[in-house]
Design a binder for these strands. Structure first.
Lengths: 331, 331
DNA sequence: ATGAAAGCGCTAACAT
DNA sequence: ATGTTAGCGCTTTCAT
């Protein structure tokens, strides 16, 4: 059914080689011939068979994107960024996520193994050695989207967690005048969480604010853990005036606790979050937080990957995407 | 670098045809031969070249998924459902969304045109005639995920908007005892919105509840339109006791208005929503709403599509996925 | 500037 | 049960 270059060749009275060249914008095709071929192709509603093209060229213009198991509200923005950029360069985006029936490793090998995919974007906190092996065995370029930027010998695009945490803490202290600030961290083995905590403590130190050890409480990035941490903070002899939660969900936990206790935000306790999830601007009071342009992260990762797929062999890139302070009404 | 059947054939001292057959689990291969071939394949770390395979078979085990421009928190769940199901049948999932640089039509043609994709899942409210043309021209099977189920001669998976709206309305009246219920609809040209409205009015009628015309107000599915509608309702001489918003965002708008006016939910006004967005369970009070298992929608659509790709030519299927009442504290 | 022909890795007749 | 061979649509030498 679908037209092939063979048919175009017949109609245009040229060889298939010429058609192929004309379609590829080869300079050695006489303009008139080219013109004719294009016309015929248009009439025949020709679409190159991408399977055949990729096959013969031993390359693929498909980008594989591997997501972790959880579904996150950020994913669709990320995918959007990837898709938009890859489309722009005539690439396609293929998606897999790991889940109970399939490990991350399987997901990756399946995608790469068959030559279906010419490059991979991985959304993972850290590269396991097994994954690294698979990645290198298949010689397919890849870019990691991660919280951790300083790792390994490959391209990484990450959120600038440190700067973001530093900035929002400095904001609390310098702009808002809080001197007693607490921090609900993420899990202590989570790289994002560690970096954010560093940003927090450094900002306090740089602004001459003393952080009491009991004002730093470890959470789990869940609302519940935010509630528990907030309870603890409020039960302290010396209460903090404000708290920076390492993500918005834990900040939400603080909201709930304050609501229950009849405490006013920001009057009795200033609250700040991290992520700018959809919910943040809809809470009452709206939550001051830090927003990363996740679509931008996807775009940058894709641009790098495509340049690699096209042969760029320069030094691995380590890109940190700046976050933006979203000042609202919670502190 | 990557091993081919040719190499396996050489090592195993058989022909490439035998290798191909063994790999395809052809019954006419002697078990020992098969065994040997499998071993060699394993040793060589063989992965079939999917590009070559799809190419020669003139088919593709790639499912294309076309999303609208907006990014929605549901998308990642939907994608998850699609990916999980397609993986299960050894299919792959490719994603495109329409955006400013690309119409839905272009997105679809690009995907199908090149034979890259063997089937398509379309997330659209309605099939334009141009799109229909493209779809038929390419003879690639497709499944629509839509609000509208009764349309056209093709497979559609949809949310059961009518039943869901009917049920939640009946719940308000029968379980909660409200007799004066209002409805903030979606845009009047939106099919989902129309169906939901029908469910609402039918449930009222069936339960002997009289709906005043001024209690049905058209919104735009946005928070702001929900606020405006709620203001209008509250300014009425005869106020409704409860309001069903056609989506959670507009219900959120009602929350804001009540908060501003010092009205208690559900004491002064009962509020119910539709969608069960992430936010719904985190509002205070938590929002009673209706939840559709969107991952399930993706799974069902994918199953149907794959059966079509495998040759199923039975009558077009019209599946409605039931929604579930999420009873919380807002009414 | 154009054509002829080889070949990519695989499948599927056809032959044995 | 296994081997031989043609050919899928395209790109790419190598000729002309």
């Amino acid at each position: 059914m679908a037209a092939t270059i063979k048919e175009i060749a017949k109609f245009a009275n040229v060889s298939i080689a010429t058609v192929s060249r004309a379609l590829a914008n080869d300079e050695k095709v006489k303009p008139e011939t080219r013109q004719l071929i294009m016309e015929v192709a248009g009439k025949l509603n020709y679409n190159p068979n991408l399977l055949a093209r990729n096959f013969v060229k031993k390359q693929s213009n498909i980008i594989g994107m591997v997501l972790p198991d959880i579904s996150d509200e950020f994913f669709s923005e990320l995918i959007k960024g990837v898709d938009e950029t890859s489309f722009h360069s005539n690439f396609f985006t293929m998606i897999t996520s790991s889940h109970e029936n399939r490990s991350l490793e399987t997901a990756v090998s399946t995608l790469m193994g068959g030559g279906l995919v010419g490059g991979i974007i991985l959304l993972i906190p850290r590269l396991s050695s097994k994954l690294k092996e698979i990645l290198h065995f298949n010689r397919v370029p890849y870019v990691i989207i991660s919280g951790d930027n300083d790792i390994g010998n490959y391209d990484v695009v990450s959120i600038d967690n440190y700067q973001a945490a530093y900035n929002i803490t400095a904001f609390l202290i310098r702009e808002k005048g809080y001197r007693k600030v607490a921090h609900i961290t993420g899990p202590s083995d989570n790289y994002d969480a560690i970096i954010r905590r560093n940003g927090f403590t450094d900002a306090c130190r740089d602004n001459g604010v003393d952080v009491k050890p009991e004002w730093i409480i470890e959470g789990k990035f869940t609302r519940k853990s935010g509630e528990e941490a907030c309870e603890r903070l409020l039960s302290l002899n010396e209460r903090p005036q404000a708290v920076l939660a390492a993500n918005d969900m834990m900040a939400l936990g603080c909201y709930n606790v304050c609501l229950n206790k009849g405490l006013k935000i920001p009057g009795d306790l200033g609250v700040a979050g991290f992520d700018d999830i959809f919910l943040a601007r809809h809470l009452s009071p709206s939550l001051t937080t830090v927003q990363v342009n996740i679509e931008e992260v996807g775009k940058i990762a894709t641009k790098i990957l495509i340049s690699r797929m096209l042969g760029d062999t320069s030094e691995p890139k380590k890109i940190k995407v700046a976050a933006q302070l979203k000042i609202r009404n919670s502190c």
